[in-house]
Amino acid sequence: MIPAAFDYYRPKGMDEVIALLQEHGDDARVMAGGHSLIPMMKLRMAEVPHLIDLQDIDGLSDISVDQGRITIGAMVTQHDLINHDGLTAAAPILREAALQIADPQVRYMGTVGGNVANGDPGNDMPGLMQCLDAQIHLIGPDGERTVAARDYYEAAYMTDREDDEVLVSVSMDTPQGGYAYEKQKRKIGDYATAAAAVQIVKVGGSVKSASVAMTNLSDVPVWSEAACDALVGTACDAAAVKSAVAAMLGDIDPAEDNRGPVAFKRHVAGIILTRAIERAWSRA
């Protein structure tokens, strides 16, 4: 658990960050909370000769809830997110999910940006961002650009972000309707055996719109359009939930690990999604 030598940078401005990234290419990585990257460096599984700490960059820690739009800076910690009343009122699913990430000590340090940017299939925020149809804002040498969370993840640890780009914030429309974030894990601090993020809008006793995403059941988060479609227009009854689950099971691709074999994970994925849909519906 002793990392290899690295150069540490703590720039004051984003221009400097971009310049360092351009200079060092994939030998450089930016660090937000460091709770994924630093353990990987200590295990010598990540080689980062140039580590760029973002904590002195202004403007990355803001949360804004304004006119139906939510923006969360990359350096906002899970702890900040949990304790922001305006955000909780506007998008309670964020708090419900963040409370199930790691443990309180990690949540003081771990950030939304790091969780979204890292591309770790075990992280909770990517699936949640896909459920909420969030936009991911990146800054690079050519200025800012925006990518939909649903288009951002390519494979485990592989995202649409270029090596010389930095994730600065995520934004989304204030979610509507009922919500639920359901997660099964072996212990506090663990990644999900299966986790589901669900938002459902109910009008006149039936589902007007639904968004369903799951975590750690593939090498990328899985937002299932087919599962959403299976719910829309129904009364979210047992048959509808069952067909949504069937659709989701068609889209996930879990791998065996210490949490259990594939058959178990697929079963639990179905149970967790069912519970999440039922809870979201009950709140819709």
Partner: peptide, 16 residues
Amino acid sequence: HDHWRIWQAANQLGLH
């Protein structure tokens, strides 16, 4: 008796 082994016991008893 972690989650999957308990689940497996239930599964083998036909409880699913």
